[in-house]
């Protein structure tokens, strides 16, 4: 259990993290979202004990990160932003160093190192110096280092940044497999990733939480939640058929030709109503489906003020 209590981190007068409070329990995979500069990385740096909080506290399984840092850090595996590692070492040397400093001794070192090498598929590059590796491999070395001691808490700052789609998928599978009985916090810009791996998402902006819930709950906040998308074979005026019907909001014409999105005015399903009308009025339907709601839309609506008119 990670408890974050009224955490504030100021740089000079600027509050990068502003009175943040939340708990994360075992088994949760928390997606940490927010625009650039929202305070995601700073929060992670405080949780991992790299930066000390200006006020408030962080406890990991009851260990306060400022009062008993060694105990707390022992429980945490951390992949910092950009996956830094010692470039002049080979993958194997670097992982041996991490294993040693994580307290493994003797034969344990090589068995543990072999285990993580297998887990993140680094077999082909064990003898290469890290600075010669591709971005994807460097990221995986960073991940290997973070999971070395099978930590109870895994904190990953943009773990899939710069990876190709296959590698992204692989890392997500890895995170899902690791997540059992653990606490995982990942920060990301990629919203589909949240739906794919997270059991909970927190959106922060200007150091404050602006949304917190399961990905499904957040999607429900979207104006596209329960909306029905329709693509027609030919031009047809839908809005006159739909006007005045309870529960149905605006009809939005999409960029694609003859495509419309029928928004719901409440969170109730409008699918049945719309499909009934479509049949009775004999719409020339080519495609017809319900939207789950778009996380991206929620993200934009809760963080829009800081985007500076973009």
């Amino acid at each position: 259990m990670i408890e974050i209590n009224h955490l504030t981190k100021k740089f000079d007068q600027f509050a990068a993290v502003d009175d943040l409070s939340f708990n994360v329990a075992e088994g949760e995979v928390l997606g940490f979202l927010g625009p650039n500069g929202a305070g995601k990385s700073t929060t992670m740096k405080v949780i991992t004990g790299f930066l000390s909080p200006s006020s408030g506290s962080v406890t990991v399984d009851g260990n306060d990160i400022t009062k008993s840092p060694i105990e707390a850090k022992t429980l945490i595996g951390y992949l910092p932003e950009g996956a830094p590692s010692y470039g002049d070492m080979t993958t194997l040397e670097f992982l041996n160093f991490i294993a040693e400093i994580r307290g493994f001794r003797g034969d344990e070192i090589s068995s543990r190192v072999q285990h993580v090498i297998k887990e993140v598929e680094l077999e082909s590059v064990v003898q290469q110096t890290i600075e010669t590796l591709s971005k994807g491999f460097k990221r995986r070395v960073g991940l290997a280092q973070a999971i070395m001691h099978d930590p109870k808490v895994l904190i990953l700052d943009e773990p899939t940044d710069g990876l190709d789609p296959n590698q992204k998928n692989h890392v997500r599978e890895l995170i899902k497999n690791l997540a059992k009985d653990k606490i995982v916090i990942i920060s990301t810009h990629i919203l589909e990733e949240v739906s794919a791996v997270c059991t909970r998402a927190i959106i922060i902006d200007e150091g404050k939480i602006v949304a917190d819930g399961t990905p499904a709950e957040l999607e429900a906040k979207s104006k596209y939640h329960q909306a029905v998308s329709v693509r027609l074979n030919q031009d047809y005026d839908l809005s006159s058929d739909l006007s005045g019907i309870a529960g149905i909001g605006n009809v939005v014409k999409e960029e694609e030709e003859n495509s419309f999105t029928i928004l719901a005015s409440s969170s109730d399903s409008i699918f049945a109503k719309v499909s009934e009308i479509a049949q009775s009025k004999q719409w020339p339907v080519a495609e017809f489906h319900v939207n789950r709601g778009q996380l991206e839309d929620v993200f934009r609506s809760v963080t829009i003020h800081s985007q500076g008119g973009e």
Binding site: F50, Y78, I98
Partner: peptide, 14 residues
């Protein structure tokens, strides 16, 4: 410069 300080100082060392 390389950011490894963040790695080093979040390991369980003093």
């Amino acid at each position: 410069k390389t950011g490894t300080i963040e790695l080093l100082l979040t390991l369980p060392i003093k």
